[in-house]
Design a protein around this nucleic acid. Sequence first.
DNA 1: CGGGATCCGCGTGGATACTG
DNA 2: CAGTATCCACGCGGATCCCG
Lengths: 93, 93
Amino acid sequence: MLRGAWAPNVIWYLSGGPRRFGELRHDIPRISARVLSARLRELESRGIVVRRLIDSSPPSAEYDLTELGRELIPAIKSIAAVGTKLKLRNVSC
Amino acid sequence: MLRGAWAPNVIWYLSGGPRRFGELRHDIPRISARVLSARLRELESRGIVVRRLIDSSPPSAEYDLTELGRELIPAIKSIAAVGTKLKLRNVSC
DNA sequence: CGGGATCCGCGTGGATACTG
DNA sequence: CAGTATCCACGCGGATCCCG
């Protein structure tokens, strides 16, 4: 389900509301367009993310979490919190 | 932190209390000894799991979650719950 | 029983170039 | 802007053999 190391990150950055491809690409540190696209497609196929295409020039796309996807947010947040504690501990000790 | 696809599973099976290597190997479906060992080592180095060696014959080892590790349990549970919902949906539709 | 050593395959990710 | 195509590197996992 959360396949790929970047999946949680993508969900994290989508938790603030709909984002466009370029926004995600710019906001998620060091992710490549290829991987972002791949993760987005997979999360979409899993029913965690929805893609909305707005046909215009310049073309734009909007990604958003589904209801199911939103249920993952608290879990990812708390895992991230533990991660932060780990980093702090490793620095101080 | 949760590197490796098996890490969440290992934490899951440790959430019920301390387990020995063989117990984990037997209870976690289809995990190989090599990978179990690798994940255990990594989780240990991250401060999520502790290893206790009980010197006797036959030799035995006990693995347990640290306090930090236990903080991950609710998150993993809720993620697993979403996973279950996804499977149910995919079967019915 | 509780692992480590080795070999090997595959998925995931990085970089770069290209397109509608 | 929003991707896709291609090539390559490496981490992770599976299987098997072996050891204290």
